[in-house]
């Protein structure tokens, strides 16, 4: 199976990333169309790829979702703060929510009563990171993601990109669910993304977070 993200692609330059953040803030503050166009130009082909893989629809309907995502980005931009996260992370969550709502509309699960963005409320973190710390974390994740063993990267790609649950990933790869779960945990541990509290097995009672 082809891995859904291209790990051979050269890393987007880190200072280029800071630019997306400041462009997006300009969109929020001044409704700056030139700044929006720059962000659009960089992320649209990535969003199309992301939404195409998870939906599997034709190009036209995928572009509708891309469009919907951008309209939300434009409207919600005043809420974007680079202190709370980077542009790519923020755009990812909006695209994910758009995908969830599109799927729920398809299967008629009360689409107008609840939107994904109501559920994935944006809780501000207590101590926002400085952009420098964020950038360093991001660079680390970026590098580690490229170095992940193919079997771990594949599981993450199926989940994040193809929109498959752990069980569906297990069915697709013909693996026990436990194997899928442990690949996810190993990958997250390598990228230092999960704290011990959430990695520990349930009921060990040994974790004392928060």
């Amino acid at each position: 199976m082809k891995i859904s993200f291209d790990s051979r692609k050269p890393a987007t330059l880190m200072n280029e990333r800071l630019e997306w953040d400041s462009y997006l803030e300009k969109v929020g503050l001044y409704k700056d169309k030139a700044a929006f166009a720059a962000v659009f130009k960089h992320f649209s082909p990535l969003l199309k790829s992301f939404l195409m893989k998870s939906g599997g629809q034709d190009s036209a309907s995928v572009e509708e979702l891309v469009q919907e995502t951008w309209i939300k980005v434009w409207r919600k931009a005043p809420h974007f703060s680079s202190k709370q996260g980077s542009a790519s992370t923020w755009i990812y969550t909006i695209a994910r929510n758009t995908r969830i709502d599109a799927i729920r509309t398809q299967v008629r699960q009360n689409p107008d009563r609840l939107n994904a963005e109501d559920i994935y409320a944006d809780y501000p973190t207590e101590a926002p990171h400085t952009s420098l710390v964020q950038l360093r974390n991001k660079r680390f994740v970026s590098e580690e993601l490229r170095k992940l063993p193919a079997e771990q990267a594949e599981v993450l790609a199926l989940m994040y990109f193809r929109g498959k649950s752990g069980q569906q990933v297990a069915d697709t790869l013909n693996l026990p669910l436990g194997t899928v779960k442990s690949r996810i945990r190993l990958a997250l541990a390598k990228m230092k993304l999960a704290l011990p509290g959430s990695i520990a097995e349930r009921q060990t009672g040994a974790t004392e977070n928060d």
Binding site: L46, Y92, A95, K138, Y160
Partner: peptide, 8 residues
């Protein structure tokens, strides 16, 4: 952030 990174 991982999602954003995969998007990138």
């Amino acid at each position: 952030e991982l999602g954003g990174e995969m998007l990138e």
